[in-house]
């Protein structure tokens, strides 16, 4: 048997039994965190907090990807997580630049106050 590169040591037999539970718990946590993030986007008034809740949703999706990668034994989930990191970083940078520009124009970070287009 070739040596297995692991991040931590454990025996391989009981490993599998615990890890089947891990995948399910991870998916449940991912779903729950996603819903919490979505709730945050609806509830919170501060623009920056809304953006942080969007990041929370992205993290929940990352967890789901990794859990499925573990369940299927493929590497594709982890590669997609790689891409999600990149896109989330780019989006956070541009979003925060927009927030800075908003603050400079309006001195206000309340989501409900940007209602000039309201009918």
């Amino acid at each position: 048997m070739p040596p297995i590169d692991t991040l931590y040591t454990s025996t391989l037999g009981a490993f599998e039994a615990a890890h089947a539970g891990f995948v399910q718990v991870a998916l449940a946590v991912s779903a729950f965190l996603f819903v919490i993030g979505a709730l945050g986007v609806f509830i919170r008034r501060n623009v920056i907090t809304v953006m942080m809740c969007i990041e929370l949703m992205l993290n929940a999706v990352n967890l789901a990807f990794i859990a499925f990668s573990r369940a299927h034994g493929t590497i594709d989930g982890q590669i997609l997580v790689f891409f999600v990191f990149t896109v989330a970083a780019a989006e956070a940078a541009v979003g925060l630049a927009i927030v800075i520009a908003l603050q400079r124009h309006r001195e206000d970070l309340d989501v409900d106050s940007f209602n000039l287009l309201k009918g």
Binding site: P2, P3, D5, T74, I75
Partner: peptide, 22 residues
């Protein structure tokens, strides 16, 4: 190199599978 390799190099459009070389 470490002795673990990807088996069945995936053709384009398919999912690549990871397996431990026994």
């Amino acid at each position: 190199p470490t002795t673990i390799a990807i088996a069945n190099q995936a053709p384009a459009g398919q999912v690549s599978r990871l397996q431990v070389a026994k």
